[in-house]
Nucleic acid binder design. Structure first.
Length: 349
DNA sequence: GGACAGTCCGTTCTATATCC
DNA sequence: GGATATAGAACGGACTGTCC
């Protein structure tokens, strides 16, 4: 039996606050609890409450603030709906085995999930962050959580991996579809709040071809950029552009999931090894000393930002904590003692 | 006028640096 | 972890010139 102490680690910041709200709003929309107008209104009203609250978390700069808010405002006005029943925050359980056959159970919640008409299961993770770090090199690391959910759903339903589609909905961005002079269509990922501005050079080429003189073309492009839409442009030009959500799709296969299982169980074994050290606190103090001037140490390190660490070092007043008994969630000595069905029922009902 | 080659230049991708 | 800024490499669309 393993006991996990409930601790509150305060990792809130302006991005977690906004991120949570964005999740809720889009999930309500996809679940058809609210319509598009209500979604837009709900977002506007949240921003208003945030602006009126003198104690609210703030963005680092006004430029970052306006970029973030403008992009998301555009998202809630223009994001695509789905024609399928959507399940939000669905609990999933993945059961992995390490190299010694020890069972490790992981529990998570899928942001949104739906099944299309071809029987493909789509798992969506919403992201309000920048796409900068979602490079091909980093994607495997970023995708671990989504892939784990895919493994969980594969185990539960038996759906083959090639029918499971995982994607990140990058809410600050849109995919701009534009037509080349050859008639061929291309796409470009752009920040939502300035997608028209980013098409200015293309418009500069296209407008003269429909007999718009250079001065008028320049004025038209400026107006379009200012309003971030192409409503003022000739219809034949408008037809050469449209936007959709920007998704980053995660490739999934039996092989990638096998690799992930090995990686995750390896991490768990490292944690077991670390936790089994006789004097872990001395070990951590020597190898990972606390540096109060280091941002990572103060805000991001799970150990140094924990209530326990702060209490022990007199950084905060002690607080009474309650304990939660968990039925061998992370694997015990005897695998047969884990009642998976009970745990599943607990989570799904 | 169509096909092709070469050049220009804008866009995209990626890595890195820096800050909080 | 989040963000932005910047630089360099790679890519490819648009344009131009030449040839037939």
């Amino acid at each position: 039996m393993l006991y996990i102490e409930k601790r509150r680690i305060n990792t809130d910041n302006v991005y977690t606050i906004f991120g949570s709200e964005c999740h809720e709003i889009i999930q309500d929309y996809l679940a058809k609890k609210i319509d598009r107008a209500e979604m837009s209104k709900s977002w506007a009203s949240f921003v208003e409450r945030w602006e009126d609250d003198p104690t609210s978390f703030q963005f680092d700069t006004k430029k970052i603030e306006s970029g973030y808010l403008d992009n998301l405002t555009h998202y809630f006005k223009h994001t695509e709906g789905l024609n399928y029943p959507v399940r939000n925050e669905k609990p999933v359980i993945a059961k992995l085995h390490d190299k010694d056959g020890k069972l490790l159970v992981f529990v998570g919640y899928v942001d949104s999930e739906y099944t299309d008409e071809d029987g493909n299961l789509h798992l969506i993770d919403f992201k309000t962050s920048s796409k900068t770090t979602f490079t091909p090199k980093n994607l495997p690391k970023k995708s671990m959580q989504l892939l784990l959910y895919a493994i969980a759903e594969h185990q539960r339903t038996g759906i083959p991996y090639d029918k499971i589609k995982c994607k990140f909905d990058m809410q600050k961005y849109c995919t701009v579809h534009y037509q080349l002079e050859s008639g061929k269509w291309k796409t470009s990922a752009q920040e939502r709040s300035q997608w028209v501005t980013k098409m200015a050079n293309k418009l500069k080429t296209k407008l003269p071809k429909v007999d718009i003189d250079p001065i008028t073309a320049e004025e038209m492009i400026k107006t379009a950029s200012d309003f971030n839409n192409m409503d003022n442009l000739p219809e034949s030009i408008q037809k050469q552009f449209f936007i959709t959500n920007y998704y980053i799709e995660v490739k999934i296969s039996e092989e990638t999931c096998d690799k992930l299982e090995k990686k995750i169980t390896g991490y768990c074994n490292d944690i077991y090894d670390l936790e089994s050290k006789e004097d872990i606190k001395t070990y951590l103090e020597i190898n990972y000393p606390y540096d109060p001037d280091n941002f990572y140490c103060k805000k991001l390190c799970a150990y140094h930002s924990s209530r326990e660490f702060k209490e022990e070092n007199g950084m905060i007043e002690p607080e009474v904590t309650e304990s939660l008994e968990v039925n061998d969630i992370f694997g015990g000595e005897d695998e047969s003692s884990t009642n998976d069905d009970d745990l599943l029922n607990l989570l799904l009902n």
